[in-house]
Design a binder for these strands. Structure first.
Lengths: 229, 229
DNA sequence: AAATTTTTGAGACGCGCGTATCGTATTGAT
DNA sequence: ATCAATACGATACGCGCGTCTCAAAAATTT
């Protein structure tokens, strides 16, 4: 009963063409061809439809839809590809502020390199939200979009002991406001900043939040401002 | 030549049916009917297409497309409607941090009330960005999405003299990261927070940034933490 | 009240996406 | 080399969006 499909949507294998092991045969080959083509197109700025990827990859539309039944699946796969190096990030430092800065330095340029992809992902998640509101939801794959939580918690892990759990969480939540594509949208698109200044503003804000969180916890009513409404 | 259209996309007249002046006739009436229907639908959470609004408003599809040639125009109009009370915001306080808090208290609940609308607007602006990248841009109306700049500058106006212009701008830019719908997306959708906690986090972060900006400028290296890499 | 202008409604059309159904080509094993 | 299994390509279909045309209805003018 239905043993034909062994690969659901994406993230099965990587590029390593070493041994004749995981996923031989033309299936994986065509899929990778499409994924690479899609990645290339998206890095070029466009957000191709499945048909467009099919054409660019020199495969028939029907075949393309076999592997990626929708643009959402396509974008999801490319996002996973682009996210890869970020998810395995590990800091060398023990200082929270420095770790956050390093995380930003690692992740943001890559997010920017895949800007079109991440924006497409955001767009699709908004689509999904709208459909969920309307009740028109077929039981889709459900976009991920939650990686920043773990990454930021990991980054400020050194503060886990020094901060009340509630403040720790709040710091992570606040930092997540200046981490993803949304930052690019606000600072680059709306404000018109370039990449360098965008990074600079995000970094400053992140650092300010980390320092404030630490200062508030140890001081609780001294140096800066003793408000605690 | 081409004097026929006097109303481009939206925000021509308001409801006041006093004098027989601005925009009498059935045109304005039908347009308002559609706008109100669209607003009602969007407040209910859905993001209707032009056809759906037409059906809900009991007008023919053709008529609907006459006034709102696309879903984008529709959303833009509803956004302007929802944004109205925010744009005329004026603070009563002279303290920057307090003004920012007041602005948040005024704007964010309204943004949340129009959540579906603002998310649709964000989605459409992403669409537009993608089309711009691809070169497929017919010369569209061009979404606005820049109001937060003036609002935040106005909110932190009391610091305009006390801060170096560069720091002033950076503070406004950083604050804009925790102001719009993006905040709802990150904190509510990704983190799963409720409205209250979402507001709380945004408020804390905003306050922290304002205080940090002030402290850094007056102290330049004292109380909190003298890092200046 | 009659004529003219304006607004509205109904239907048809093209377009792109996603799906389903075929026959054909390629692969890998006997 | 032959045969079964699997992947591929071409084609056609339904669906929703946006556009267009043309006749009917309503409003405004004379």
């Amino acid at each position: 009963m239905d043993v034909s499909r062994q690969q659901s949507t994406a993230s099965d294998d990587t590029e390593r063409g070493g041994g004749p092991t995981i996923e031989r045969g033309p299936r994986a080959r065509t899929k990778r061809l499409m994924l690479e083509t899609a990645t290339r197109l998206m890095q070029a700025g466009v957000t191709p439809s499945v048909s467009e990827v099919a054409e660019a990859a020199q495969v028939s539309r029907a075949t393309a839809y076999r592997y990626f039944p929708s643009q959402a699946a396509l974008v999801q796969a490319v996002v996973d590809e682009g996210l890869g190096p970020i998810l395995t990030w590990q800091s060398t430092s023990a200082d929270a502020e420095r770790r956050v800065a390093e995380l930003f330095d690692t992740a943001m340029p890559r997010i920017e390199a895949f800007e079109a992809t991440f924006k497409a992902a955001l767009k699709l998640s908004l689509d999904q939200w709208a459909r969920r509101q309307a009740g028109t939801l077929d039981g889709e794959p459900a976009f991920t979009r939650g990686h920043r939580i773990d990454l930021l918690k990991e980054a400020i892990a050194p503060l886990k002991g020094r901060l009340p759990p509630r403040d720790f969480k709040r710091l992570a939540q606040a930092l997540s406001l200046m981490f993803g594509v949304e930052v690019l949208i606000v600072l680059k698109d709306i404000w018109g900043l370039d990449s360098r200044r965008t990074m600079s503003v995000a970094q400053w804000a992140a650092g300010a939040l980390v320092r404030t969180a630490v200062a508030e916890s140890i001081g609780e009513g001294d140096s800066i401002d003793p408000r605690q409404s």
